[in-house]
Each structure stands twice: as structure tokens, then as C-alpha cells.
């Protein structure tokens, strides 16, 4: 059994976008803070810290889920995919990102990281979604800029429809 005292800094190793990385976290450190401030990976955004806005959504252990509702110590040994892992090493955008770009599916871009991660997992599970299914999936995200229309279009385009 693992027990970590409240003020004890624990070494936490996670595989982020295929690469093992480590940092230290007290039990209460949110995964979002760990990714951003301990690992220096600022791609995962923090919009509400209570699980509603969806900006921090990442694929953790195979599930698209909120990283603000996870504590770093819970994730030791897990695989995490974040928005930084989507494009090629040379910066070439992947199909989904390109579709977002071409459809104006992002404006300020703050919510986009989370939406891209949800959409990535969603399209793996449901490769040819209809608009209602896309909107249902998107209901777990708040985007204040776009009004969602162009996001729906982009996801549909990325699904090859």
C-alpha cells in the first residue's frame, strides 16, 4: 500500500506523449499543476478547476477526462496524452488540428487543447459521428469564442465526412 504524508513530496513518473518524465508532488497537487509547473508542459489549460469547463481534458490511461480532478500522485506510472503530442515533431499539424485550423474552429485557443483531446479519443471510439453525437461530446466543454458551429464542422471534416 502506498501512503504519502500530507507534506511529503513524492516522485511521480508519468509517460507523457510517449516519453517518461518525472517530477515531485505533494498528495494535494493537482495533475494540471504538475503538468504545467512541475513538468513545464503548458499545453494543458486550466479554466475552472472544478471539472466543468473541459479546458484541462487530457487522455489519461486511455480515457479522455479532466486533469483538474486528478491528483498527480494518483497518476504515477500512467500514460498521459496531451495536446503537445498531436502534431509531428517538426510542427506539422495532424488531421484534426488541420481541420480546426481550416474551419476557424478556434479563436482564442484556450479551450482548444481540451477539445482536441476529447475529440481525438471520441473519434477513435466513434469514427463517423453525426452532428448530434459531436455536440453531445462537446457538451463537456465550454468555448466562449466560436459558438461551437465551426468546431462541429472541423470534427466532421477530420472524420472524413
Amino acid at each position: 500500500m502506498l501512503r504519502i504524508k500530507p507534506d511529503q513530496k513524492q516522485r511521480v513518473t508519468v509517460t507523457v506523449n510517449g516519453k517518461a518524465v518525472s517530477g515531485y508532488a505533494e498528495p494535494r497537487m493537482l495533475l494540471t499543476d504538475f503538468l504545467r509547473h512541475e513538468l513545464g508542459m503548458y499545453g494543458t489549460h486550466v479554466g475552472c478547476e472544478h471539472g466543468v469547463c473541459g479546458a484541462c481534458t487530457a487522455i489519461i490511461d486511455g480515457a479522455a477526462t479532466r486533469s483538474c480532478l486528478r491528483y498527480a500522485v494518483q497518476c504515477d506510472g500512467l500514460e498521459i496524452q496531451t495536446v503537445e503530442g498531436l502534431a509531428d515533431a517538426d510542427g506539422t499539424l495532424n488531421t484534426l488540428q488541420k481541420a480546426f485550423n481550416e474551419n476557424g474552429a478556434l479563436q482564442c485557443g484556450f479551450c482548444t487543447a481540451g477539445i482536441l483531446m476529447s475529440s481525438t479519443k471520441f473519434l477513435q471510439e466513434n469514427p463517423k459521428p453525426n452532428d448530434d453525437e459531436i455536440r453531445d461530446m462537446l457538451s463537456g466543454h465550454i468555448c466562449r469564442c466560436t459558438g461551437y458551429t465551426q468546431i462541429v464542422r472541423a470534427i466532421r471534416q477530420a472524420s472524413g465526412q
Binding site: C48, H50, V52, C53, I134, R135, D136, L138, S139, G140, H141, I142, R144, G147, Y148, T149, I151, V152
Partner: peptide, 17 residues
């Protein structure tokens, strides 16, 4: 005081225009 009480519009509530 939270995003569960302040109801930002989400994708299903935006009608077609």
C-alpha cells in the same frame, strides 16, 4: 459562483443559424 450554477452555453444549446 461556479460553472455548475452560472450556465455558460454549450454546444447542444446553440441552435442552427
Amino acid at each position: 459562483g461556479t460553472f455548475a450554477d452560472y450556465l455558460c452555453i454549450t454546444a447542444p444549446e446553440v441552435p442552427e443559424v
